[in-house]
Amino acid sequence: MIEIKKVDNRPLNLLERLYIWEIFKGFLVTSGHFFRNLFNPKGLITVQYPEVKRPLEYAAKRRTRHRLKVRADGSPKCVACFLCATACPANCIHIEAAEYQANPVEKYPAVFDVDLARCVVCGMCVEACPEDAIAMDTEEIPGGALKREEMYLTREKLFRNLPGEPSLKGAANRLAQGGKGIGRG
């Protein structure tokens, strides 16, 4: 339903052109708000974030600080496929891949840095990850650091599993479980 507001463009009458009465009327409006809020501060609609957090209707879709999931043996689920870095529109993910000599997963991120100062919290990295290795569900709001370095997350700061993990999702999970070959070929 579109509402139409009719604007009254008639010329101002003498009383209005003197402004004094009109200013006084405005004065009553503002001071009315002032006294109402002064004597009833609980009526204010501001939420005192982060002390007070209002449950959000779509909390499940909320994106917060990144984390990297780890396998049961403590190794990262990430295999440094660079898809998150490819998807990232802010170019905030820096990965350097390395090779496991013994682990059948073969590839792991020797360096995995997320620069929260550049991150735009779009969640594309999570969407892109084929290994279910990166998530944005730590419920920590990125930002608000006193030093730039605090905004730069390295591999170690990112590793974290939530209760109920590690999950077995991800393309390389089969390798992690040590898939056996048939014959030599």
């Binding site: 059948p104 073969e106 390798l175 070959g181 048939i182 014959g183």
Partner: peptide, 22 residues
Amino acid sequence: PGDKIRRSKRRAAGKYLTLDNE
């Protein structure tokens, strides 16, 4: 995925190559 036939993964094939039969 569990029913796929597994073959040998990476192994060195000479100085410069890696062979993955799978």
